[in-house]
Amino acid sequence: MLLEVKDFGIEFHDHDRPERVVEDLDFSLDTGEILGIVGESGSGKSLTGLAIAGLLPRKKLKKEGAILFEGQDVLRMERSALRELQGDEICMIFQEPMTALNPTMRIGRQVEEALRIHHKEMDAAARKERALLWLRNVELEDAERVYDSYPHELSGGMRQRVCIAAAMVGGPKLLIADEPTTALDVTVQAQIIRLLQRINEEEKVAILFVSHDLSLIRQISDNVLVMQKGRLVEKGPVEKIFSEPREEYTKKLIAAIPRVNLDE
């Protein structure tokens, strides 16, 4: 088992009254699996993603349970050990490719960042070679030109591809994708989904796909978690959840998928 989340909970303590935003969350993720987490805004799905990446602040919130990545608890790990994992074993792509890249740094440098930090034995030429390999692998045309560009010279879709390349360059085992296509238009969205599926097959990287879009989740995931108000509503294989949902909330969500019927 690559990732096991046990009795996980988050409680915010930054106001007078503690606020529970995630409660009793249990799930696991195998090597090479794609797990979709779906839920409305405020369901705690993004927070769960951030927690697995070890990006939650250490203060002002209480974390319960355990998040085991290859048996090690991400929540209670030494900071230095966590840094070893981050960028190397666990990577993340974000919703907004506009702000996820540093505007003052060339693309090449940003893609190489994980190598610079985790693979100090690599020299500049090897780093560049690996970065270019990944820029091509995310289907960017003219990878050499992109390598020397700044983020503002690229389109949104290209930027998200760059983010995927930057995340994958170190060869992680888990990729957390937090609404990676929400800010993109529909055609680009479909391309990114196909790209993620291909990378998942070729690299055997597990993907945690966080989204509010059920149809996307259905396309890409093997298994699905449905969350509402910080609680797990239902989990199971994607086709089973869609064909015979057990919970009322899941049924409502599925019924809310917009259908285009041109015959009527």
Binding site: R83, G87, M105
Partner: peptide, 23 residues
């Protein structure tokens, strides 16, 4: 997000402040 993403790359606080944010 790019700072978040740099942190996720395992970059140290020092590196994030001076290499990523300052420019």
């Amino acid at each position: 997000d790019y700072v978040q993403s740099a942190r996720l790359m395992g970059a140290s606080h020092f590196r994030i402040i001076f290499v990523h944010i300052l420019p």
